[in-house]
Design a protein around this nucleic acid. Sequence first.
DNA 1: CGACACATTGACCAGACTCAAAGCTAGTGG
DNA 2: CCACTAGCTTTGAGTCTGGTCAATGTGTCG
Lengths: 248, 248
Amino acid sequence: MNAAADQSAMTMLIRKLESIAALSDKERRAIQSLPGRIQNLGAQQDIVRDGDQPKHCCVILDGWACRYKLLSQGRRQILSFHISGDIPDLPSLHVPTMDHSIATLTKAVVALIPHESLRELTARHPGIAAAFWRDTLVDAGIFRAWLISLGQRSAFEHVAHLFCELYLKLQAVGLAGDHRCPLPITQADIADALGLTPVHVNRVLQEMRGRTLITLRGRMLVIQAWDELLRLSEFDPTYLQLERRAAG
Amino acid sequence: MNAAADQSAMTMLIRKLESIAALSDKERRAIQSLPGRIQNLGAQQDIVRDGDQPKHCCVILDGWACRYKLLSQGRRQILSFHISGDIPDLPSLHVPTMDHSIATLTKAVVALIPHESLRELTARHPGIAAAFWRDTLVDAGIFRAWLISLGQRSAFEHVAHLFCELYLKLQAVGLAGDHRCPLPITQADIADALGLTPVHVNRVLQEMRGRTLITLRGRMLVIQAWDELLRLSEFDPTYLQLERRAAG
DNA sequence: CGACACATTGACCAGACTCAAAGCTAGTGG
DNA sequence: CCACTAGCTTTGAGTCTGGTCAATGTGTCG
């Protein structure tokens, strides 16, 4: 966190909510004055666990996190990726028991906000309540999009679709542009999200490079052929409900 | 619809909401007096289409429906199954544009309720608003469970998991018991939901019959070995959030 | 500079798909 | 009440996408 961010840790949350709904000045101020315990976390650390009944929600201020579920024999399904501004455990406000875990994928900074404060905030500001509501509906839309990918798309199309989605989500909160975005996760993480093996994800990435669709080095993804990637994966950005900008 | 049901078409909606949240007498009466245009539909008929901006929600009173998305080359992914009491397009109250379609799978009876009436109802009865909210969160939980099945389970485990889920959902609204439930959909429908081919679904069903796990004839599913099916599919009913009864 | 995690490659395997052909069964109309 | 039909289910043979197992690079951080 730098000095500007310290002024309000909630800046990223506001930016995220404004990417899917309009906020008034009053609402922005109310969010900025939310109490939040800042926490620095390492990579691969659980934030909330399957079966927990959390009493606070976590806003991601920096770094990447994911929802995931463990099955027998160490199988892991990643259910969603989360970036700055996201509140992955927002549903815990209304559904007490977690049916999955949430963990960091990279080093991360999060703010823990008591459920109580959030309930007060939403009771006082119906506009914010609506924005939260809308956020979880967008989340559900992303789950549906992943269902479609898992059920109908080839591994190649699936990876392409994921890259389009991640780029647009990052762009919406100002963390990407010019068809480049950070991608600080491993091929094994991607594999667990797409229901593939790391080996096969690697082969798909090789093919994408070979076809000059992307560059992926260090932790930076460059989409060299955006339109082509959209076309190949039949990407339709409607489900992200990003009102302010068209895809691309 | 029989005479008793005519008394209030919303009986199934109330029963459904009570399977996931508590309602007061006042709230029950408010729901019962909702205005709803009753419609009789044939099988395979669209109720809402991808891209629509609906002005009402549909409560399913009888029959089965599904959410689905069409891709190129006639591929169809079914995103969820819906039964009596469900409001599959409830999210349209807060997210204007549909990113998928909703259609009947069997002959069905639905009630169309204007968004306006629902907004009035929820504004006047926060408990009902909370129940609706909770319902869409449960829906999201079901999407996550399907993600896990698609990503990590074998075809056999996936079919088993689906059968456990459908049985419990039907039981929760009084449409199943004794490990028997109606299953008025085709193997092709199941295939489109699980991302498999109808041929492979058929082979899986044959194996389940061979292992005396289920009986499936006419449009009736009998689960002969419930515990075994739960175990084989690693079924954990938490995500359905059915407070009142344990699984089974 | 060494160690560990991550990425890459190769050879072989298997679960699910494709294509094609019968066999059932529930509605329909005569 | 029966014959017909359309849609659904079942079965078989061959194929392919993605998985498994195992080894070898590569890069990054103490």
